[in-house]
Design a protein around this nucleic acid. Sequence first.
RNA 1: GCCAGCCUGGCGGAAUGGUAGACGCGGUGGACUCAAAAUCCACUAUCAGUGAUGAUGUGAGGGUUCAAGUCCCUUGGCUGGUACCA
Length: 799
Amino acid sequence: MYNFREIENKWQKKWYEEATFKVEMDKNKEKYYVLVEFPYPSGTGLHVGHARVYSASDVLARYKKSKGFNVLFPMGWDAFGAPAEQYAIKNHIYPREAVEENIKVFKGQMQSLGLSIDWSREYSTTDPEYYKWTQWQFLQFYKAGLAYKDEKEINWCPKCKMGLSNEDAQGGVCERCGTKTTKKLKNQWLLRMSDYAEKLLAGLDDTNFFDKVKLAQINWIGKSVGASVIFKLKDTDDVIEVFTTRCDTLFGATYMVLSPEHKYLDKYRDLIKNIKEVDEYREYAKSKSDIERTDITKEKTGVEIDGLRAIHPITGEELPIWISDYVLASYGTGAVMGVPAHDERDYEFATKFGIKIIPVIDGGDISKEAYTGDGLHINSDFLDGLDKETAILKMTKYLEDNNIGDSKVNYRLQDWIFSRQRFWGEPIPMIHCDKCGWVPVPEEELPVLLPDVESYEPTDTGESPLANVPEWVNTTCPHCGGKAERETDTMPNWAGSSWYWLRYMDPHNDKKLADMDKLKYWGKVDLYDGGMEHATRHLLYARFWNIFLHEQGIVPNSEPFDTRISHGMILGSNGEKMSKSKGNVVNPNDMVRDYGADALRVYEMFIGDYTKDAAWNENGLKGCKKFLDRVYRTKDKLNDSLEYTKDMENLIHKTIKKVGYDIEHLAYNTAVSSLMILINEYDKHDTVSRADYRLLLQLLNPFAPHMTEELNEICNLGDAFSESVWPEYDESKTIDDMLEIGVQVNGKLRATITVAKDSSKELLESEAMKQDNVKKNIEGKDIVKTIVVPNRIVNIVVK
RNA sequence: GCCAGCCUGGCGGAAUGGUAGACGCGGUGGACUCAAAAUCCACUAUCAGUGAUGAUGUGAGGGUUCAAGUCCCUUGGCUGGUACCA
């Protein structure tokens, strides 16, 4: 219909060359910061799902700009990490080159969508100028005592030969390759994120995240309020401390369970008479992957420790001690008290091994299952007759008074395993000296550059490939000047993305990670858009990191993001997730080629609720192209008027109001729909005014920026939209003078009447009664009452 | 298992408790054309009826209300997250 390719190229070139969307700090203007998760530049390029997200952010950015905001809409590349390394290994090129290649493709794709990104702020996390500051921030963690090295049982992916954080090994499988993870004892760098559990929870109140995002974070942090209880270990000076949320059931505790990794098993080897059997069980537990271990459908297993007994802290009774893998070393104290009557897992265990079951709460049938509900306590001495809540309070007090326990809070959140045995990551800037121990690289020596090497494939020993580069590893101790070695582990690829939004504010600063004045001006990200898959990991890491920087006085706000939304996915036309293997991937390049970027953008905004998934349908895209063609053709029927056409004025004002409201509320689909309604109205007229046309183009501009700018220019309608202000609407003109309202009889629609706005109840009622079909339906019946809601409805209730 | 979200025409989807199905796709019929494409017009939830109209209808079953897709209870299914977390 029109040459979209030529038009789009023209404007994209102009925007890029003239840096139309470059922004600078301007304290006279209110800022607005739109952030989309920066992409991982993989070898496959963007698909239409990405295009939807970038288009939506661009609509908002362009709209906010025309509303007078100083809009920061940046883009960069999250390019460290295993996938880039694997891509490089597979294609036999250096990771650095692979990344550069992929970035070129991604950037080209983004530019072909006509995004209003300020490209002067572009960077990659793999740029030494950037990772210098990632390393610098690691040193701040270290200096604050929040980075430490520890021999830890970690999640280990045998295929990737790499340690994984809990977040990366969800469900007991490797996030990257899906292989079942095993445990491996390794010396690793960790960040004390668990110390920040409470701050991460509390900080959520200071955000406007989507509720489901907040909830995902709350669940991941997993705060649980309870008490610790101390049991004496018979014939020793040691105690077994357990964590429980149900200290009120203490009188029902009939045994103890230690996790197979518990330290007492080594410490008291000599007291354990069946040590061989115990060792065998520990070996068996170790050999199992997390996923097997935590499969709740499997039967409980365990071994009673012959030779160790615990003393019940109140009754003084001796309790048997078992080991079982249903108790996790990583949660609580790695030991539990077994209360089979009121805990499902304990019940299952006790019934299998014939352990005594004492009910301490009235209710349920203990011969069938554990009773986990509330009820009055029995068999519980001073708790008898109390309900759960009261009993917990009383027991906690008793534990404290008698020094056998304490109220306690436990979190599921653990420290962040920060080491990766990989080449393609930020080197951890630490040096090990036999004399001085771990010594940080002096800040003025940053960045610690990745060396150019021949082989960056993972080693079989589980060590980083960097360990094979002696000229890089061997160095001198910054402290004593003696012989020393560099840390060969690198950071996880979550590191670079844990502060990237800060760098956009001042991307080329070589003195600081960013200037404080600029950090203060741009402040928090106003709207942060990303996938639900990052609602726990990335978002928690980023918040943790930012809270820490704030405490160090490096950034002005504790919370980095104001509103966090999560977009839906674009599914294939078969309704399934787009993937190469299913052959349902749609490439935005093809769509831009066949229909134009404007049409693609409009369709992706029109496809459905932005926060929900939607299936791709190329016919829908064709429909949007048709809509744009109609907008384009309208240029041939302009009259000379510079005012809105009288009989369309109302609709125009309504549309201005609706499109603005919808963009601010992420209701892009209904915004597009109201523009379609507007063009439908224009089409009914033989001519439209220049004002009508300019208005339509302006409202459509955030969605279809190229053709609207072009039409505006060739029709000579006014300033370029990239520099103009969003139109105002007149509230009084958004209201119709005449309304059509429904008349119901017994709640069923029987007629509609057209009346003046704000007609009186009396008039509405009498008009309603005049309708033939209403008369027919109330004939011979008694009118019980008549409900008249002005401007809305008339409902006549008859019997 | 637990937590969250979702379920509306043939399809994608609209609906501050107030005329369910806006808008788009698809479909049917027509105009234009030698013909096709493009474009334009009309119709298009289902059933009955030429029609006026009537009945049914937002996963299912109850309830609140003059009025329920929307609020409450019960329940089914789908999707996502998470899981021996003591």
